[in-house]
Design a binder for these strands. Structure first.
Lengths: 267, 267
DNA sequence: CCTTCCGTTAGGCTC
DNA sequence: GAGCCTAGCGGAAGG
């Protein structure tokens, strides 16, 4: 069990204080910022921002978060977005003021500063968050591939994927091969982002390997949501084709598939 | 002084619990969500998101915030942006699970759902935040316009703004029109940020409309703090001029103006 | 309800 | 490091 309001071992992982007198709060905060800890404050504050634009936020109760990477978030009781914020790499300074506590978070490039004055602090939580969990946003190249295998029309009418899994040798990209409606062999390289000329070069070297072993008409197609302008000439030169395919389209195919699977069980 | 961990009157404004057993935590949360309270949880969680895309976030300690308007934020220990989130108007449901607590936040349009499973809770804070303070963002396009109307020299010497408020038809941008020192008609488009080629296109279509009705020399000027490199050729082609104007300069003009107004009352 | 465009956009990726 | 573009963009304004 993680430590919370009690010290636990030498370094408490999360130290929570309520109704802390200002003087003590300042000490806690100074230590926390010096140690680059995570800091969360709920309290009544006034916020000034100056930089690309400038703003003033008058007294009110908000949640303020200072992360160890120097990012700052100030949240009002409603709304998805922070009312004021600062991206990572800010320098944070705490000062005792007659009226309360003044915290400034400054960055350069662009030069911007937020100053937060607290005149009342309900909750201070300082410590560290242990978070190494993987984050994965799906609709990856793998999912794009899966979508194309389900609905080859996404690439072109009459396409028949042949494959599976087997490559001449791992070419370092997500691909499909198959036959088009005329019986030509087709190799598809999938990119989740706008395709660069590198993609074309990669696909071409793959095609070369195949040409050495197989003697039949061969087409190379890059499938991606977009084609980087600079890649255009390379495609020309290598006679590689480009097909635009948005991840959302893939997602909807996969979702439909999923829904169909579900409906089998539900029916 | 605001209530914190102690009940204060009938309804505690902020109720902070650390090391709460899961069963009690569920009760606290259910009540809080029913009352549409503000809820903040620091604890170890797993997050699944499904909607326009989908994502999985494996176990780790995060800060999770549920606001009274139904918005949800999940923050990792680094980064300005939430790793997962939900905009306002979500339906939030709490369930006890063997392993912990499952909270789902769902919305339709688009249909999206986040489910957060906690297997460990370090801190639960529920209550309400009293925040009616005014938020003012200074130096908007409207303010830049105002500054130029006060001090047309900001754009060029001899400029005389003509109008007010009247447009050929709303072209969707902040503008001024007037005459230059030679009597040519001038249309100014103001951008608060670096002007893109879209700005030029927009201004040009506006100029075209005017040219159809008026037959006299006409100049188009984009006023902005910067010009996006990619917009340069478009300006060339459309014969649109660019004048650099920093928001700070506008701000100081407005400030001077304000000071003068004030001084009238003070003198 | 839709589209279009702005943002203290932030963040990622190419050049 | 600078320029350019995307985003689960969100949000506002206009139609």
């Amino acid at each position: 069990m993680r430590g919370t309001s009690e010290d636990w071992g030498h370094q408490p992982l999360l130290n929570v204080k309520t109704n802390l007198p200002m003087d003590e709060a300042v000490g806690v905060l100074e230590n926390a910022f010096r140690a680059r800890n995570f800091v969360l404050i709920i309290g009544e504050c006034w916020v000034d921002y100056d930089g690309r634009a400038s703003s003033t936020l008058e007294w009110g109760e908000r949640v303020t978060i200072f992360k160890k990477d120097g990012s700052v978030l100030i949240h009002r009781p409603t709304g998805y977005e922070p009312v004021n914020w600062q991206p990572p790499k800010c320098a944070i300074v705490v000062n005792r003021r007659d009226s309360g506590i003044l915290i400034t978070a400054a960055r350069s490039q662009p030069r911007e500063i937020i100053s937060i004055e607290f005149r009342n602090v309900s909750l201070v939580a300082v410590g560290s968050l242990d978070d190494t969990g993987d984050f994965a946003l799906h609709v990856t190249e793998a999912q794009m591939k899966q979508a194309i295998l389900i609905a080859p029309d996404l690439v072109e009418a009459g396409l028949t994927p042949l494959q599976q899994e087997k490559h001449v040798e791992n070419a370092g990209f997500t691909d499909i091969y198959g036959e088009d409606k005329d019986g030509s062999m087709v190799v598809i390289e999938i990119k989740r982002n706008a395709a660069t000329k590198d993609a074309a070069i990669q696909l071409n070297s793959y095609l070369d390997k195949i040409r050495k072993r197989v003697n039949r008409p061969l087409r190379g197609i890059i499938v991606a949501p977009d084609l980087r302008k600079s890649a255009q000439p390379m495609l020309q030169v290598l006679s590689i084709e480009f097909v635009k395919l948005d991840p959302e389209k893939c997602f909807s195919v996969l979702k439909t598939q999923k829904d169909m699977k579900l409906s089998q069980f539900i029916s």
